[in-house]
Write a protein that binds this DNA or RNA. Sequence first.
DNA 1: CTGTTAGCGCATTCAA
DNA 2: TTGAATGCGCTAACAG
Lengths: 335, 335
Amino acid sequence: MAVTLRDVAERAGVSVRTVSNVVNGFQHIAPATRARVQAALEELNYRPNLVARSLRQGRTGIIMLVLPEINVSYFGELAHEVVDYASSVGCTVQIDESGGDPQRERALLETIAQASWVDGVLFSSLGLRGVDLAGLAGGRPMVLLGERTARTSLDHVGIDNVEAARQAVAHLAGRGRTRIAALGGSGGARDATSKYRLKGFRLGMRAAGLDPEGRYLRTADYRRGSAATAVRELLAWPERPDALFCFSDELAAGALRELHEQNVRVPEDMAVIGFDDIEASRFSTPSLSSVRPDKAGIAQAAVDTLLARLDDPAGAVREVSVAHELVVRESSGSA
Amino acid sequence: MAVTLRDVAERAGVSVRTVSNVVNGFQHIAPATRARVQAALEELNYRPNLVARSLRQGRTGIIMLVLPEINVSYFGELAHEVVDYASSVGCTVQIDESGGDPQRERALLETIAQASWVDGVLFSSLGLRGVDLAGLAGGRPMVLLGERTARTSLDHVGIDNVEAARQAVAHLAGRGRTRIAALGGSGGARDATSKYRLKGFRLGMRAAGLDPEGRYLRTADYRRGSAATAVRELLAWPERPDALFCFSDELAAGALRELHEQNVRVPEDMAVIGFDDIEASRFSTPSLSSVRPDKAGIAQAAVDTLLARLDDPAGAVREVSVAHELVVRESSGSA
DNA sequence: CTGTTAGCGCATTCAA
DNA sequence: TTGAATGCGCTAACAG
């Protein structure tokens, strides 16, 4: 069996209270006592039972991070930042995947509401609307990551997708492209991310004196494999695009591949820009221009916001907008 | 405050024992009582406190997964499989990162020994030797993932790296390549993965009647960014290689990029094969040949092995070898 | 400065 | 079939 405070107390000939004090680094302890307890602690190789401690304190220090899929590069990189920052503030991260499926997201939230060992949840939803989420959290502190789909009582951390998308389009237009197309997501209410990026796309097009209508193509998801058919379709448009704004770097990677197969040169015949700036994009051929969200900033803001919410459950709803940046590489170089 | 068993018991006019029985689905309960308790349960929206339950039962259902970095594609994909399978057997996954640094791995294990809410640990080490690990686990069940560095008392799940590497080399030789080079890791005792892959490289070379000596180049790590300088060096060899076996797909991706910059055609001038078969490899230009470990198989075996160890702490040490497969794509197509 | 003790919420043994 | 009571290991309020 595991050695308990009580065992140590007996060994050292003191009370559990004193041992607890030593373990937790309390100040006012007689040096002699402290030394004796320390010795007993080490002789018995005492390890505090964190479950018991958590039961007592009501906090576990465990943050749950819900993502569509951890194997998707962007989410992997985001998770990395979250784990990294969380550990620096003494928290560990539990990861769950929703698969981006609203039904599974819902089921997961049911579980979360019960999984009462997590102090709070960072939820990166693709399918559920904020209003749905709020009700499902089961009163547990939750911060929404990515896009907020509707007015809700939940804290939210994300970037300005509209502005970021607008800048991407402005960049393409600035390089002389006039037949710009956008690609990714559903563009509708169900997928807020693409909705806002599409909005930014339209703003950017109009600002450049271009007509955005009929220049957007949906995809089933944001993965590499979903780009190929879309790209073929887009190449068959009567007015073939000379630039492509993909709503994720993975889509852009899939697009680069398909463009290669169709013998379309990038950037000469088609400029391409992605979104997320995943690491692979720096090394692709051609290297991929992208919108880079400050992932570390998102992670930090998310964890901080969650911790603040834990301390003040009734505080005002927080809305944090994190920085982003345009990264220009070969794929959108001047033709 | 949260609703407890006691609250429900009062409400239903029964004892906590009875409520507990209903919650846990015990059989012998009078239908009338059960109905009354059920009603109270729902009216009060009772959620069991899992921390308290865990304290009582001694198990949390939390598995800790320790990886070098979750943002590295291979580990992201592996984590995905682990989370997926673990959830199917009722476990949640807590992720920690070691950064691949032996010192941090050691520190992390100290924490693990204390973090007594995890039932067991899946440890994918890069730097520490198995013998070191065994002592540090603090008696907590631990399964080693990837490579086992030394005889140890720990369970281990991995693929046959020697054979996999041998096959990769045989494939290149089979395509008529004679000046094959290997790239990645330290090749030494500190990095068992590259040690075994290097061993397989040598076996494959000799089997093809080629001399493996002096045809291996180390890298600082397995990331894309570490390939460039190595590739430049390798291109300057007196007998310039016509094939490159990279010990990871990320290295291979970095190599493809650098080869492109140096105007070396792939596969015409240089065949390239990687290791891990990450998703990006299917879509790169050229698409990348690779050794594909059965990641789902690894995840499943790892979790199963850990659970078995939990049930039988004294059982025989398990050594599981999971399947792998060679995936041939453009980068190693015949010249 | 340190000992005693009451719970945290739950599962469970002993009675009834 | 159900109630009362114990304790998992710990922290903290209350003494002394």
